[in-house]
Design a protein around this nucleic acid. Structure first.
Lengths: 248, 248
DNA sequence: CGGACTGTTGATCGGTATCAATGCTCGTGG
DNA sequence: CCACGAGCATTGATACCGATCAACAGTCCG
């Protein structure tokens, strides 16, 4: 459940903006974003941010924390479509298509910047660089989904897991959530299972296999990549382009 | 291999534009699109339109025909990410991210409208309504991929096939490629297998099962949905919103 | 302390893969 | 016009990856 609505982080002093991973902003755009932002939303781990069918009037950027997008079949089978990290937009599909076909849930306590959805058109009309950034992010999400589809369609369970670990590590690293090949792993094996399309039981066995081969080390919410080379070989993973990305 | 470069269809007289499925255009936008379009590309069935790694300077809209997006692992395993039909943009990821991580191949003889990629920024700067349309299409593609991910992750082979048939039928219908619950099926069972993440052998058996239950009829490149209700029940499929969509 | 959730392990089952042979269709060239 | 070959589809036999079922262990928290 949504919580307090405070406004603590000024866009001009945004801690995310300082990170290497993100592109610097023109003043004009930054000033607009500062106005575009109407508040901050802090939610607890486990709470729903955007619900399928529920047309909240907001668009968000994750400022801090992990979330995940998911989608279910009527009988309850649930799939984790992707994870979301700081800098990722939440609710863009809703803002553009006026329809949401998935749910977004916080994995950790999460802070989000809140934008008014009805100003998206203003963005396109008056701030083309920002609009371009939004489209950039939509395209990048599409690219990640392409990767996950390839994974689910063609890779074995072990390969999928290796791929997902590398994928998550690299994304966490890009926003400063990793160091020394290690990152906070706020997800459960059940989350992984739902992302990989396998059962939790088999996930457990598969994780164990990677650990026994000394490829990873996962203890107490910290996951370490021990042998990146071998993991990459198993997964046929290639590190993504690390050119700087936009931030809204 | 790309073929002749002709220019036969004027945007103002675009046959696609007349279809119910698409939103009407403002004159200003239409005039620009007409200028934006630099030609037409006709390719034969089986030829590559956009190749991974290969930075062609073009962005396309499919004017006529079927294509498919796909992506492979180094060892050759290939996955069909999605199919593309008239009105669909090809190469948007390339235009926006400046990088393509998949290939697009023509399934039938296909005609494409060719746009200059380097004018995409002009679109955002001067034609916000068009830019919005592009983003709309990117978001819709993302939505479809979400659906396919749910399918691959959670549905059985039979359910996936039922889902894909309905999905393809409805998309074909929207652009006038279906009538009487029947549409041209230019794909092979191997294509389906690659989209569903199962083997061609198992695809054959699964298709057979749907036919024996009199749910579909697939003969000589024509696929008919015989019992939509039961298919929808098997697939847990819901027809997509049919509000009119943009066209570029 | 108790309960809820998460993860582990073992036994068994089943859906889909794999291997292999055959059939079908269609375009091509003799 | 027929023979042929290349893809594609079908069918059967068998193998295996991951699902399911079940019991139990660990951890956290009220």
């Amino acid at each position: 459940m949504p919580d307090t609505m405070t406004f603590q982080t000024k866009c001009h002093a945004c801690p995310l903006r300082k990170k290497q991973a993100f592109r610097p902003f023109e003043d004009k755009e930054l000033n607009f974003v500062a106005k575009f932002k109407t508040g901050e939303l802090k939610v607890e781990a486990g709470s729903t941010i955007v619900l399928e069918e529920n047309k909240t009037p907001h668009l968000y950027t994750i400022l801090e924390g992990w979330a995940f997008r998911h989608k279910s079949l009527p009988d309850g089978r649930r799939h984790v479509l992707n994870f979301a990290l700081p800098g990722d937009l939440v609710g863009l599909q809703l803002a553009i298509l006026n329809e949401m076909q998935h749910t977004v849930t916080a994995l950790t306590d999460t802070t989000l910047c809140v934008f008014q959805r009805d100003k998206v058109w203003t963005v396109f009309k008056d701030y083309p660089a920002l609009a371009y950034s939004m489209t950039w992010m939509a395209s990048r999400e599409e690219q990640m989904l392409d990767g996950h589809l390839l994974s689910l369609g063609q890779r074995s369970a072990l390969e999928r897991l290796a791929y997902l670990f590398l994928h998550l590590h690299d994304r966490a690293e890009a926003v400063g959530y990793a160091s020394n090949h290690t990152f906070d792993a706020p997800f459960t094996q059940t989350h992984l299972a739902e992302a990989l399309g396998i059962t939790p039981v088999h996930t457990s066995r598969t994780v164990k296999k990677l650990q026994q081969q000394n490829l990873i080390n996962w203890k107490k919410d910290r996951l370490q990549i021990l042998n990146r080379e071998k993991l990459e070989a198993i997964a046929a993973y290639e590190r993504d382009d690390t050119t700087r990305r936009p931030l809204i």
